[in-house]
Write a protein that binds this DNA or RNA. Structure first.
Lengths: 232, 232
DNA sequence: GCGTCCACTGAAACACGTTTCACCAGGAGC
DNA sequence: GCTCCTGGTGAAACGTGTTTCAGTGGACGC
């Protein structure tokens, strides 16, 4: 429950308690670190994280450049800090707002919520995706936790009302869905798919696995790389 | 058939013929560009592409730095050129070497071949994955083509011996598999999964979708984030 | 009050991707 | 042969992430 944005964002396994939550918890952060994070978020709102200069982050947050590097070992690490910080915001919404009549609808609702969370702020979302795929150690650890936590939420949504543990097949379905979703997000970040296409294809995939091969809805299947506009 | 590694790697849609192949064809390249590519590949073999300095690429290939930038508009663009170049190597192997008794085996064989192609040279493989997810325009276009071409190959493998067009569900299955594969590769690049885990989970997913929910093999299901060593 | 320690500061330096520019060589057209 | 144009060259400069370092001020034990 401790970790999250505390000094030197995990990575070195120093503060590594597990937290079953989606993000890393409310994340108690000291004043300075918080100022740095807020400065980074603020500056990133314009041109995206890529356009943020650490010198500016330092200046805006009123600390020396060296202090930024004392808290975050690299720009990438700072981004990871920001992501963890933001992720906490969507955390409880997941379990609260997800309702629906059938299993499929509930599943998709979860992914829709998260998709919106990213797609609503393209700069931020793209930065998240890019960072997730960059293969950095600190991010990889967070991703594993996120993957696990999200899997629990999705499984719970899948089994709502049924008092039994998930079958291996159901666990697999959830895992596959998460991976498909991630891949679709990468496509979105590259401008290949828009939000609607993401949910379309995800829905098709979920239907395929839940209802069986023979009951896939016709319309929802898109040619190889799901066309679609570019915006949101 | 023209494009591939020619000057200014696509991106600007200038040389953009479609090529149904996996890569972009044998890619006729002028002498200088070839030297640059080879220098980049050679230098990347040690510390990965990240450790390659463009100044060195220029020096090793015997051209001026400006010339490198004349052919490739950025380091990322150079990497994309290298990837296209290497991808051509695995191209024909895909359709030649894939055999197998049943559909599932054939499917997995294709992905295994490509997985090895990346995993055998971790530095290169990681660079490919990272680049694929970076959301750059030039790479996104290549990815779309690759996705489409690979889909055709996989569909062909799925339908070997049957003279009929694929059903929408089959197309969807292939697309989902590709996405799962990609996501697993990202996990590999982050050191979360090894080659075996990739093929394990991919096989499970394929079995799930081809044979149905009830016939998923027991062993192949891994906890949330498919554990596994780190090597290869 | 005094010494010790440690985080922060300010500023400079470094590394490397990227840009710019003046200059030159070789081929095309005349 | 002369001019023009295109593309290469060499070198310098710029921008920004990252590192380094001497100094400074507050906290804490004594």
């Amino acid at each position: 429950m401790t970790d999250g944005i505390t000094s030197h964002n995990s990575a070195s396994g120093v503060h590594d308690d597990d937290d079953a939550g989606i993000a890393d918890g409310p994340t108690v952060v000291d004043e300075r670190t918080l100022r740095i994070l807020r400065a980074a978020i603020g500056l990133a709102e314009d041109g995206g994280f890529q356009a943020v200069r650490l010198r500016d982050v330092a200046q805006v947050s009123g600390v020396a450049l060296g202090t930024v590097y004392k808290r975050f070992r690299s720009k990438e690490d700072l981004l990871i800090g920001v992501i963890s910080h933001e992720l906490a915001a969507v955390r409880e919404r997941l379990t609260l707002e997800v309702t629906g009549d059938d299993r499929l609808a509930r599943l998709i609702a979860i992914f829709a919520l998260l998709t919106d969370f990213l797609c609503d702020r393209p700069n931020f979302g793209r930065a998240v995706i890019r960072s997730a795929a960059a293969g950095e150690q600190a991010m990889a650890e967070r991703l594993v936790r996120f993957h696990g936590a999200l899997a629990e939420v999705v499984v719970a949504a899948l089994l709502t009302g049924e008092a039994r543990p998930p079958t291996p097949a159901e666990i697999l379905v959830v895992s596959v869905l998460q991976r498909v979703w991630f891949s679709l997000l990468v496509g979105w970040a590259s401008g290949i798919q828009d939000r609607a296409a993401i949910l379309d294809e995800l829905t098709s995939a979920a239907a395929l696995m839940i209802h069986g091969v023979d009951r896939v809805p016709e319309g929802a299947i898109s040619p190889p790389a799901g066309r679609g506009g570019r915006s949101r």
